[in-house]
Protein backbone atom coordinates (compact mmCIF):
# COMPACT_ATOMS: atom_id res chain seq x y z
CA UNK A 1 0.00 0.00 0.00
CA UNK A 2 2.61 2.47 1.09
CA UNK A 3 4.53 1.45 -2.00
CA UNK A 4 1.81 2.66 -4.33
CA UNK A 5 1.39 5.95 -2.51
CA UNK A 6 5.14 6.26 -2.68
CA UNK A 7 5.28 5.69 -6.37
CA UNK A 8 2.61 8.32 -6.97
CA UNK A 9 4.74 10.68 -4.99
CA UNK A 10 7.80 9.61 -6.93
CA UNK A 11 6.31 10.20 -10.36
CA UNK A 12 5.19 13.61 -9.26
CA UNK A 13 8.61 14.31 -7.92
CA UNK A 14 9.98 14.51 -11.45
CA UNK A 15 7.10 16.80 -12.40
CA UNK A 16 7.95 19.07 -9.55
CA UNK A 17 11.65 19.38 -10.17
CA UNK A 18 10.87 20.08 -13.80
CA UNK A 19 9.23 23.33 -12.65
CA UNK A 20 12.44 24.79 -11.27
CA UNK A 21 13.87 27.94 -12.70
CA UNK A 22 17.55 27.33 -13.35
CA UNK A 23 19.75 27.92 -16.39
CA UNK A 24 19.01 24.45 -17.74
CA UNK A 25 15.28 24.67 -17.05
CA UNK A 26 15.09 27.96 -18.90
CA UNK A 27 16.72 26.62 -22.04
CA UNK A 28 14.47 25.99 -24.99
CA UNK A 29 12.85 22.52 -24.73
CA UNK A 30 13.61 21.78 -28.35
CA UNK A 31 17.32 22.31 -27.77
CA UNK A 32 17.32 20.08 -24.71
CA UNK A 33 15.45 17.41 -26.59
CA UNK A 34 17.84 17.43 -29.53
CA UNK A 35 20.91 17.41 -27.30
CA UNK A 36 19.51 14.50 -25.29
CA UNK A 37 18.67 12.46 -28.37
CA UNK A 38 22.08 13.19 -29.85
CA UNK A 39 23.74 12.28 -26.57
CA UNK A 40 21.98 8.94 -26.45
CA UNK A 41 22.81 8.18 -30.08
CA UNK A 42 26.46 9.03 -29.52
CA UNK A 43 26.56 6.98 -26.32
CA UNK A 44 25.25 3.82 -27.89
CA UNK A 45 27.46 4.26 -30.94
CA UNK A 46 30.67 3.61 -28.99
CA UNK A 47 32.38 0.33 -29.76
CA UNK A 48 31.73 -2.47 -27.33
CA UNK A 49 35.23 -2.51 -25.87
CA UNK A 50 35.63 1.28 -25.55
CA UNK A 51 35.11 1.92 -21.89
CA UNK A 52 37.68 4.59 -21.20
CA UNK A 53 36.88 6.75 -24.20
CA UNK A 54 33.29 6.98 -22.96
CA UNK A 55 34.35 8.67 -19.73
CA UNK A 56 34.11 12.26 -21.06
CA UNK A 57 30.39 11.65 -21.62
CA UNK A 58 29.98 11.93 -17.87
CA UNK A 59 30.86 15.61 -18.12
CA UNK A 60 27.52 16.35 -19.74
CA UNK A 61 25.57 14.62 -16.98
CA UNK A 62 27.57 16.23 -14.21
CA UNK A 63 27.05 19.67 -15.70
CA UNK A 64 23.30 19.22 -16.15
CA UNK A 65 22.97 17.88 -12.61
CA UNK A 66 24.77 20.91 -11.27
CA UNK A 67 23.43 23.68 -13.47
CA UNK A 68 19.91 22.30 -13.25
CA UNK A 69 20.11 21.87 -9.48
CA UNK A 70 18.84 18.29 -9.80
CA UNK A 71 19.20 16.07 -6.73
CA UNK A 72 21.56 13.23 -7.58
CA UNK A 73 20.25 10.41 -5.43
CA UNK A 74 16.61 10.21 -6.58
CA UNK A 75 17.65 10.25 -10.22
CA UNK A 76 20.27 7.54 -9.73
CA UNK A 77 17.73 5.45 -7.87
CA UNK A 78 15.27 5.71 -10.74
CA UNK A 79 17.93 4.80 -13.25
CA UNK A 80 18.38 1.46 -11.46
CA UNK A 81 15.09 0.37 -13.00
CA UNK A 82 16.88 -0.75 -16.17
CA UNK A 83 19.55 -2.66 -14.31
CA UNK A 84 17.81 -6.07 -14.29
CA UNK A 85 17.14 -5.89 -18.02
CA UNK A 86 20.67 -4.94 -18.87
CA UNK A 87 22.14 -7.57 -16.59
CA UNK A 88 19.94 -10.14 -18.27
CA UNK A 89 20.78 -8.97 -21.77
CA UNK A 90 24.51 -9.07 -21.34
CA UNK A 91 24.79 -12.09 -19.10
CA UNK A 92 26.27 -14.34 -21.79
CA UNK A 93 28.86 -11.86 -22.99
CA UNK A 94 31.59 -12.99 -20.55
CA UNK A 95 30.93 -16.62 -21.41
CA UNK A 96 30.74 -16.36 -25.19
CA UNK A 97 33.52 -13.86 -25.65
CA UNK A 98 36.28 -15.11 -23.40
CA UNK A 99 39.42 -13.95 -25.15
CA UNK A 100 41.59 -12.00 -22.71
CA UNK A 101 41.91 -8.31 -23.40
CA UNK A 102 43.78 -6.89 -20.42
CA UNK A 103 46.23 -8.80 -18.33
CA UNK A 104 47.25 -7.39 -14.95
CA UNK A 105 49.94 -9.51 -13.44
CA UNK A 106 48.34 -12.92 -13.42
CA UNK A 107 44.68 -11.84 -13.64
CA UNK A 108 43.31 -11.70 -17.15
CA UNK A 109 40.10 -9.89 -18.03
CA UNK A 110 38.17 -11.28 -20.95
CA UNK A 111 36.69 -9.18 -23.74
CA UNK A 112 33.26 -10.42 -22.68
CA UNK A 113 33.51 -8.76 -19.27
CA UNK A 114 34.61 -5.53 -20.86
CA UNK A 115 31.74 -5.51 -23.33
CA UNK A 116 29.34 -6.40 -20.53
CA UNK A 117 30.58 -3.49 -18.49
CA UNK A 118 30.38 -1.13 -21.45
CA UNK A 119 26.79 -2.23 -22.09
CA UNK A 120 25.87 -1.42 -18.51
CA UNK A 121 27.63 1.93 -18.63
CA UNK A 122 25.93 2.84 -21.90
CA UNK A 123 22.49 2.01 -20.65
CA UNK A 124 23.01 3.98 -17.46
CA UNK A 125 24.29 7.01 -19.32
CA UNK A 126 21.32 6.91 -21.68
CA UNK A 127 18.72 6.42 -18.98
CA UNK A 128 20.15 9.14 -16.77
CA UNK A 129 20.24 11.45 -19.75
CA UNK A 130 16.54 10.78 -20.43
CA UNK A 131 15.66 11.25 -16.77
CA UNK A 132 17.54 14.52 -16.73
CA UNK A 133 15.59 15.65 -19.75
CA UNK A 134 12.22 15.09 -18.08
CA UNK A 135 13.38 16.53 -14.79
CA UNK A 136 14.42 19.75 -16.48
CA UNK A 137 11.57 20.02 -18.97
CA UNK A 138 7.88 19.61 -18.21
CA UNK A 139 5.91 17.08 -20.23
CA UNK A 140 3.82 19.77 -21.90
CA UNK A 141 6.85 21.66 -23.13
CA UNK A 142 8.42 18.45 -24.29
CA UNK A 143 5.30 17.62 -26.28
CA UNK A 144 5.47 21.01 -27.91
CA UNK A 145 9.10 20.41 -28.80
CA UNK A 146 8.22 17.04 -30.32
CA UNK A 147 5.60 18.81 -32.35
CA UNK A 148 8.20 21.24 -33.61
CA UNK A 149 10.22 18.24 -34.75
CA UNK A 150 7.17 17.19 -36.79
CA UNK A 151 6.56 13.99 -34.84
CA UNK A 152 3.04 12.80 -35.75
CA UNK A 153 0.42 14.29 -33.46
CA UNK A 154 -1.07 10.93 -32.58
CA UNK A 155 2.20 9.73 -31.06
CA UNK A 156 2.57 12.88 -29.01
CA UNK A 157 -1.01 12.58 -27.79
CA UNK A 158 -0.37 9.00 -26.73
CA UNK A 159 2.63 10.12 -24.77
CA UNK A 160 0.82 12.98 -23.06
CA UNK A 161 -2.25 10.96 -22.19
CA UNK A 162 -0.27 8.02 -20.90
CA UNK A 163 1.69 10.35 -18.69
CA UNK A 164 -1.48 12.03 -17.46
CA UNK A 165 -3.42 8.86 -16.79
CA UNK A 166 -0.71 7.03 -14.90
CA UNK A 167 -1.73 9.06 -11.87
CA UNK A 168 -5.35 8.20 -12.39
CA UNK A 169 -4.59 4.50 -12.60
CA UNK A 170 -2.32 4.54 -9.56
CA UNK A 171 -4.77 6.52 -7.46
CA UNK A 172 -7.68 4.23 -8.28
CA UNK A 173 -5.54 1.24 -7.53
CA UNK A 174 -4.35 2.59 -4.23
CA UNK A 175 -7.96 3.32 -3.21
CA UNK A 176 -9.05 -0.21 -4.01
CA UNK A 177 -6.05 -1.63 -2.25
CA UNK A 178 -6.75 0.38 0.89
CA UNK A 179 -10.35 -0.78 0.91
CA UNK A 180 -9.22 -4.37 0.45
CA UNK A 181 -6.53 -4.41 3.08
CA UNK A 182 -8.74 -2.75 5.70
CA UNK A 183 -11.12 -5.67 5.49
CA UNK A 184 -8.49 -8.38 5.10
CA UNK A 185 -6.13 -7.61 7.95
CA UNK A 186 -4.18 -10.84 8.14
CA UNK A 187 -3.27 -11.23 4.51
CA UNK A 188 -0.08 -10.31 2.86
CA UNK A 189 -1.03 -9.36 -0.65
CA UNK A 190 -4.31 -10.06 -2.36
CA UNK A 191 -5.93 -13.47 -2.47
CA UNK A 192 -5.56 -14.96 -5.93
CA UNK A 193 -9.30 -15.60 -6.24
CA UNK A 194 -9.88 -11.88 -6.19
CA UNK A 195 -7.26 -10.92 -8.74
CA UNK A 196 -9.73 -11.08 -11.60
CA UNK A 197 -12.59 -9.00 -10.17
CA UNK A 198 -10.18 -6.57 -8.58
CA UNK A 199 -8.29 -5.87 -11.77
CA UNK A 200 -11.58 -5.59 -13.62
CA UNK A 201 -12.72 -3.02 -11.10
CA UNK A 202 -9.53 -1.03 -11.48
CA UNK A 203 -9.90 -1.06 -15.23
CA UNK A 204 -13.54 0.02 -15.23
CA UNK A 205 -13.08 2.69 -12.61
CA UNK A 206 -10.01 4.06 -14.29
CA UNK A 207 -11.80 4.07 -17.58
CA UNK A 208 -14.75 5.96 -16.11
CA UNK A 209 -12.55 8.44 -14.46
CA UNK A 210 -10.44 8.95 -17.56
CA UNK A 211 -13.66 9.56 -19.46
CA UNK A 212 -14.67 12.26 -16.99
CA UNK A 213 -11.28 13.93 -17.21
CA UNK A 214 -11.55 13.86 -20.96
CA UNK A 215 -14.98 15.50 -20.70
CA UNK A 216 -13.50 18.17 -18.49
CA UNK A 217 -10.89 18.82 -21.15
CA UNK A 218 -13.40 18.93 -23.97
CA UNK A 219 -15.60 21.33 -22.02
CA UNK A 220 -12.79 23.78 -21.91
CA UNK A 221 -12.41 23.80 -25.65
CA UNK A 222 -9.93 20.98 -26.08
CA UNK A 223 -9.91 19.69 -29.65
CA UNK A 224 -6.98 17.30 -30.05
CA UNK A 225 -4.78 20.33 -30.35
CA UNK A 226 -2.57 21.03 -27.40
CA UNK A 227 -1.98 24.66 -26.80
CA UNK A 228 -0.45 24.19 -23.40
CA UNK A 229 2.49 26.44 -23.05
CA UNK A 230 3.65 28.26 -26.07
CA UNK A 231 7.35 27.52 -26.51
CA UNK A 232 9.38 30.69 -26.97
CA UNK A 233 11.64 31.39 -29.88
CA UNK A 234 15.19 30.04 -29.83
CA UNK A 235 17.61 32.65 -28.60
CA UNK A 236 21.38 32.94 -28.84
CA UNK A 237 21.90 31.09 -25.56
CA UNK A 238 19.98 28.09 -26.93
CA UNK A 239 22.01 27.97 -30.14
CA UNK A 240 25.26 28.15 -28.21
CA UNK A 241 24.14 25.35 -25.90
CA UNK A 242 23.12 23.19 -28.84
CA UNK A 243 26.27 23.73 -30.85
CA UNK A 244 28.52 23.37 -27.85
CA UNK A 245 27.21 19.93 -26.94
CA UNK A 246 27.09 18.63 -30.47
CA UNK A 247 30.68 19.68 -31.06
CA UNK A 248 31.69 18.31 -27.67
CA UNK A 249 30.04 14.94 -28.28
CA UNK A 250 31.58 14.64 -31.73
CA UNK A 251 35.03 15.54 -30.43
CA UNK A 252 34.96 13.01 -27.61
CA UNK A 253 33.63 10.39 -29.97
CA UNK A 254 36.39 10.74 -32.53
CA UNK A 255 39.31 11.65 -30.27
CA UNK A 256 40.04 9.46 -27.31
CA UNK A 257 40.37 12.29 -24.79
CA UNK A 258 41.48 10.25 -21.76
CA UNK A 259 44.29 8.69 -23.78
CA UNK A 260 45.29 12.06 -25.21
CA UNK A 261 45.37 13.61 -21.76
CA UNK A 262 47.28 10.66 -20.45
CA UNK A 263 49.89 10.95 -23.13
CA UNK A 264 50.26 14.69 -22.55
CA UNK A 265 50.83 14.20 -18.84
CA UNK A 266 53.14 11.28 -19.15
CA UNK A 267 54.90 12.94 -22.05
CA UNK A 268 54.68 9.81 -24.13
Amino acid sequence: MINIKNSIYKIRFLDEISQKNTFIHKLHPLVKLIVSIFYIIMTVSYGKYEIFSMMPLLIYLVLVFNLGDIPLKPILKRSLIVLPIVIGLGIFNPILDNKPIYIFHSISISRGWVSYLSLIIKSFLSVICALLLISTTSMDKLAKALQQLHIPKIIIMQLLFTYRYIYVLLEEFSNIWTAYSLRAPNQSGIHYKLWGPLLGQVLIRTYDRAERIYSAMKLRGYNTEFNNTENDKLILKDYIYLIFWIVFLLVVKFYNIPVLLGSIFTGA
Binding site: S138, A216, N223, T229
Partner: peptide, 17 residues
Protein backbone atom coordinates in the same frame (compact mmCIF):
# COMPACT_ATOMS: atom_id res chain seq x y z
CA UNK B 1 -10.94 19.00 -13.61
CA UNK B 2 -7.40 19.84 -12.62
CA UNK B 3 -4.93 17.83 -14.61
CA UNK B 4 -2.09 20.18 -15.45
CA UNK B 5 1.18 20.49 -13.63
CA UNK B 6 0.51 23.90 -12.10
CA UNK B 7 -2.56 25.89 -11.12
CA UNK B 8 -1.64 28.56 -13.66
CA UNK B 9 -1.51 26.03 -16.51
CA UNK B 10 -4.86 24.66 -15.47
CA UNK B 11 -6.59 28.01 -15.43
CA UNK B 12 -4.93 28.88 -18.74
CA UNK B 13 -6.01 25.60 -20.36
CA UNK B 14 -9.39 26.88 -21.60
CA UNK B 15 -8.31 30.29 -22.96
CA UNK B 16 -5.35 28.70 -24.72
CA UNK B 17 -7.61 26.17 -26.40
Amino acid sequence: QLFNSTVYEDVAFGPRN
